[in-house]
Design a protein around this nucleic acid. Structure first.
Lengths: 110, 110
DNA sequence: TTATAATATTGCAATATTACGATAATAAAA
DNA sequence: TTTTATTATCGTAATATTGCAATATTATAA
């Protein structure tokens, strides 16, 4: 019926999928990339940087924030966003576990 | 208009988003998890393992395969799927780069 | 050849995502 | 208070995703 069967999967599987989904858009990858290039916790010249309208950028930022990948703090009339590494670490640990598990079993499939 | 502006982003950003998108569903995370628990390159008792209909599982497998995250080889009348680590490694390297970059600049934003 | 088993594809309904114009909300500056 | 700058929200159109029944395909087995 088009609705993800969230209840059929484990909490961990859903959490990982949420983190992955938040990052799974080129605009959001671009936002992360941009946040890494600026020395200071820059606000939204992200809008100037990306070829997207302000509401679109705002929506992408909201999704990243909801997923806990970035955090924002109010700074005068602008908002200072930066990456929150916790979820990135969770994701990296998952990938590490996958790679370790593959190494150990060393499948020959194909 | 609802269509992702792929051409507005770099090849790398789009590639990363594609890998992330392929993994960004609890059913597909569950498939990966299952593939890791079976010693051999198991085929599709994935259908028996997951609470999803066979066509749905088949579609998820197709997406994982298209993204290069799993590979499948024909084995009689069944198909043997297993994880292809290349894309996982690309993803981990990206996360490493993010974490390294955060460490270096050490932002105070918050 | 005719089952049978394992996967894939098609078609469709339900829902989610993406993008943006218009507009609202918030807060400093004049 | 009025302006201005920054960000968020609403509404909506276009498109994508999810899930499955029905059916097709493929390949072994009988």
């Amino acid at each position: 019926m088009g609705i993800t069967k969230t209840e059929s999967f484990t909490t961990q599987q859903n959490e990982l999928a949420n983190i992955l989904k938040a990052l799974a858009h080129p605009a959001r990858v671009a936002i992360i990339d941009y946040l890494l290039t600026v020395d200071e916790c820059i606000c939204s010249d992200i809008v100037n940087e990306l070829p997207l309208a302000q509401p679109t950028v705002s929506q992408h930022l909201k999704e990243l924030k909801n997923a806990g990948i970035i955090k924002g703090s109010i700074d005068g009339k602008s908002i200072c966003y930066c990456i929150d590494e916790k979820k990135i670490i969770i994701l990296r640990e998952y990938l590490d576990a996958i790679l370790l598990s593959i190494k150990q079993t060393d499948k020959i499939c194909q």
